[in-house]
Write a protein that binds this DNA or RNA. Structure first.
Length: 861
RNA sequence: GCGAGAGUGGCGGAAUUGGCAGACGCGCUAGACUUAGGAUCUAGUACCGUACGGUGUAGGGGUUCGAGUCCCCUCUCUCGCACCA
């Protein structure tokens, strides 16, 4: 017989063995089961860039632990995986290396799937989705058309963000500090006709429903709230006598409208052109205006819109009229007014807006106080900054004396009554620009016909396939636009020659609905079965990086609401709870290829095994926080895996011996193989009458640890403390077996503590756990076992140590019976001779007993 | 500038409800076992002090019998937004 390695968990042999066993037995396969509560655990699916990095390992380990734990707790768990596999890197590989994007993508997916399997994640691979495959993007295109039919997708010409390096447009959310989120190039503006999704239609709902998302981190909700940027105010029409038209301004402070001393429009405001065309602006000024416009164009958006940038502008030499009081106000253009927000025109109230104040001071424009402070001493001539606090309206005609907060609505109502304005809500959120001038994405399924206009590709002709003979030599327009066979088609309505849309969809469209497809991934006839979707959704726990706080999470929320309104979903929100995991760092900075500070999961798995890797990454830091990778740390996890293995292996003969003393019912496979079931153990221990103090202690620690770990995994996602609890239990088991004479050791107590420990470690180290479970004599996988039940009574200590403080300083420690009330606790403390000695001759002012914890005696003198 | 979060031993971190600060792990020290060990097991390890004891959770103040935890001020770091009218 071959020598069995006893001192170390042979992960090289055991991990692949168990992976194959699970796959063969299909233990991770899941279908709807009305007999069990459902649980949908989801990790953000990866882009197949090549190999897994530690960030992936962290993300997927967290979700796997949650999924495995929930399964053991009796839930029917949906735990899928897939690939967000359209996008630029594949196309760049095609351009640079001449490999087809599909081939490149497929190879990467194969490699990453292999690694995910090596890590022992419990995915139902039958549900995998691959966004680059026609069977997926067919439905991406189908959803586009549902949105089109329901008015949620439209085409318009607008100044859009353009990344010159990626040669494509970008959504607002994909511009970070004026730079392309992907390549970092400075983004410019271009006027183009592009497809948009009408996310702004849901602005209010997206904002309000954030309140429902109590399972989300506060800061993500806040980021979305800020991004949506709702503001309440009014639009007011100033008149421009020179051209006989209205100039509408947007303001959140209609209560200050009587304080307007100038009006500013964005340099690119159309009114400016009309004033120039009409000859209303002096020639010398026109030159200044043109120069100013040029200067603004040359400035990138960051500098122009930075708070630090000094305010500057040009007086157009034209006046506008305030409709409230008929007063004239100078019309200016200035750098700090943006065409994109509101109406591109603002009223200048220097007394009550800091920006206007600075501008007025610089230029020398008048300042007029119209909100008086409670002291009543606000004076335009002595002000050093704008007064933006509450007050009562002054110099404001019929509104004088009105509290300004009330005045806001009153002024807006008055404007509406008089026909020169109305209350208005504004959002920072823009519609989502989804067109991309790239080939490796889902083609937008639209056709342009000279006679019929824009015509959707009929549903039975979906998907619009990406040709596999694209020319990526990278010249001029996108490869799709250059592909004659793709571009030329017949109009579905009139049959005449027509052209296809050459743009593809933003890859964020693909990832906005992948979690819906998991509920029915192989459906060839529908996007998904409505009932299956209704069964699994919403996602119970979503886990991913904070970098998606706005982009992906906002888009997915929008898609959910959009598909609901198209009649395909019954939920309002896709992700009930969200956990944003921290980054994996090395030497204090995020691991990244460009910085070269990478620890490769591949090497770590090869050296320490998947279980040790998983354990370390879950132990080293709380899930939300950044984690510093250390070699010493994973060594520690590796040591613990082996220490745990030895603990169980050395106890197995004892446990099997205990089995032999008990009757075996026929057909009990586990019993025949020497195993004691958890039920038998509980029963046996309930009857046991000879438990020693050491036995009771170990049982108490076992049950207390089980309780702690259960709560940590169920309610807190405190994986690090769950693991530390298991380490403590391991230490306690070692100590018991070290300190209690062998003849005195209780086999049932040992078996209970050992088996409980193995069950608890199963979600973290699935291979180790199944190996040990098997060695203990169980014929079936531990991952099909129920989670152990803790006994509250056993977990409770019979005696507790209480601390006796005198004036807040610890002076004595007493062992007292558990469950004493306040008076009994106090009496126990006062009975201590040591305490009596220390308070002798002093006046006891007060005694504060805290049952089960401490007693504080306050003495004087 | 605004908003959010964080600051605890040599290091990662724990303290869940205001109640023994430093669990657990790393590192380090010593011992045992060993031909050997960078394996394993055992013990120790916040700081000052020989000790009795004292001091300690970024700094300062406050509430309380009692504060890492609550309140106020200050500092540092991280993230998000950044002239949004």
């Amino acid at each position: 017989m071959a020598e069995e390695r006893f001192d170390r968990f042979d992960f090289r042999e055991a991990e692949p063995k168990w992976q194959q066993t699970w796959e063969k037995q299909q233990i991770n396969k899941v279908t709807e089961d009305p007999g069990k509560p459902k649980y949908y655990a989801l990790a953000m699916f990866p882009y197949p860039s090549g190999k897994l990095h530690m960030g992936h390992v962290r993300n997927y380990s967290i979700v796997d632990v949650i999924a495995r734990f929930r399964r053991m707790k009796g839930y029917n768990v949906l735990h899928p995986m897939g690939y967000d596999s359209f996008g630029m890197p594949a196309e760049n590989a095609a351009i640079q290396k001449g490999i087809s994007p599909a081939v490149w993508t497929k190879a990467n997916i194969a490699e990453m799937t292999e690694q995910l399997k090596q890590l022992g994640y419990s995915y139902d691979w039958d549900r995998a989705v691959y966004t680059y495959r026609p069977d997926y993007y067919k439905w991406t295109q189908w959803i586009f058309q549902q949105f089109y039919k329901n008015g949620l997708a439209y085409k318009k010409t607008a100044p859009v963000n353009w990344c010159p390096s990626c040669a494509t447009v970008l959504a607002n959310e994909q511009v970070e500090d004026g730079e392309c989120w992907r390549c970092g190039s400075t983004v410019t503006k271009k006027d183009l006709s592009q497809w948009f999704f009408k996310i702004t239609q849901y602005a209010d709902e997206l904002l309000n429903d954030l309140n429902q998302l109590q399972g989300w981190p506060e800061r993500v909700r806040l980021m979305q709230e800020n991004w949506i940027g709702r503001s309440e105010g009014a639009q007011l029409d100033f008149s421009v006598p020179a051209v006989g038209e209205k100039l509408t301004v947007y303001t959140t402070r209609p209560d200050t409208v009587y304080g307007v001393t100038f009006v500013v429009v964005a340099p690119e405001h159309p009114l400016v052109e009309r004033l120039i065309e009409g000859g209303h602006i002096p020639t010398a000024t026109v030159e200044q205006v043109r120069a100013f416009q040029e200067k603004m164009k040359g400035q990138n958006e960051i500098t122009r819109t930075s708070t630090d940038t000094e305010k500057e502008g040009v007086y157009l030499g034209v006046d506008v009229i305030n409709p409230f009081n008929g007063e004239k106000a100078q019309l200016w253009i200035a750098n700090y007014v943006l065409m994109e927000y509101g109406t591109g025109a603002v009223m200048g109230v220097p007394a009550h807006d800091q920006r206007d104040f600075e501008f007025a001071k610089k230029i020398g424009l008048p300042i007029k106080v119209v909100i008086q402070n409670p002291e009543g001493n606000l004076d335009a001539t002595t002000m050093t900054e704008a007064y933006t606090e509450a007050g009562s309206m002054a110099n404001s005609g019929p509104f004088d004396g009105t509290l300004n907060e009330e005045g806001k609505a009153k002024v807006a109502a008055f404007a509406a009554e008089q026909g020169f304005g109305q209350g208005k809500v504004n959002y920072r959120l823009r519609d989502w620009l989804v067109s991309r001038q790239r080939a490796w994405g889902a083609p937008i399924p639209m056709i342009y016909c000279d006679d019929c206009g824009t015509v959707p590709v009929p549903e039975d002709q979906l998907p619009v396939l990406i040709p596999d003979d694209l020319d990526f030599s990278g010249q001029g327009s996108s490869p799709l636009a250059r592909h004659e066979g793709f571009m030329n088609c017949a109009c579905p309505q009139c049959g005449k020659a027509a052209k296809r849309e050459s743009d593809t969809m933003d890859t964020f469209v693909d990832s906005s609905w992948y979690f819906l497809r998991y509920t029915d991934a192989q459906n060839g006839d529908q996007v998904f079965d409505k009932e299956k979707a209704a069964h699994w959704l919403p996602v119970d726990q979503y886990v991913g990086g904070i970098e998606h706080a706005i982009l992906h999470l906002l888009y997915a929320r929008f898609f959910t609401k959009g598909l609901r309104d198209c009649g395909y979903l019954t939920i309002d929100e896709p992700f009930k709870a969200l956990l944003t995991q921290g980054m994996v760092c090395l030497d204090g900075t995020k691991m990244s290829k460009s910085k070269g500070n990478i620890v490769s999961p591949e090497e770590m798995i090869a050296k320490y095994g998947a279980d040790a890797c998983r354990l370390f990454i879950m132990f080293a830091a709380p899930a939300e926080r950044d984690l510093d990778w250390t070699d010493a740390g994973i060594e520690g996890a590796y040591r613990f895996v082996n220490r745990f293995y030895r603990m169980v292996m050395s106890a197995i003969p004892t446990i099997h011996h205990a089995r032999s003393l008990l009757p075996v019912q026929t057909g009990n496979m586990a019993a025949m193989m020497g195993a004691l079931t958890m039920g038998e153990l509980a029963e046996g221990l309930a009857k046991a009458t000879t438990l020693t103090e050491a036995d009771k202690d170990l049982r108490r620690i076992t049950h207390a640890t089980l309780k702690k770990v259960t709560i940590d995994l169920y309610e807190r996602f405190a994986f690090n403390t769950a693991i530390s609890g298991m380490m403590e239990l391991t230490n306690a088991i070692y100590a018991y077996r070290e300190k209690v004479a062998e003849a005195e050791q209780n086999t049932l107590v040992i078996a209970e503590s050992i088996q409980t420990a193995v069950l608890m470690i199963a979600p973290f180290c699935p291979h180790l756990a199944d190996e040990l479970w098997h060695k203990l004599g169980f014929p079936t996988s531990i991952h099909l076992e129920p989670w152990a039940q803790y006994d509250e009574a056993v977990a409770q200590a019979q005696t507790v140590e209480i601390v006796v403080q005198i004036n807040g300083k610890v002076r004595d420690r007493l062992d007292v019976a558990a469950g004493l009330n306040a008076a009994e606790t106090e009496a126990a403390a006062m009975a201590s001779p040591k305490v009596q000695e220390m308070i002798a001759g002093k006046q006891v002012a007060k005694v504060i007993p805290v049952p089960g914890k401490l007693v504080n005696i306050v003495v004087k003198g």
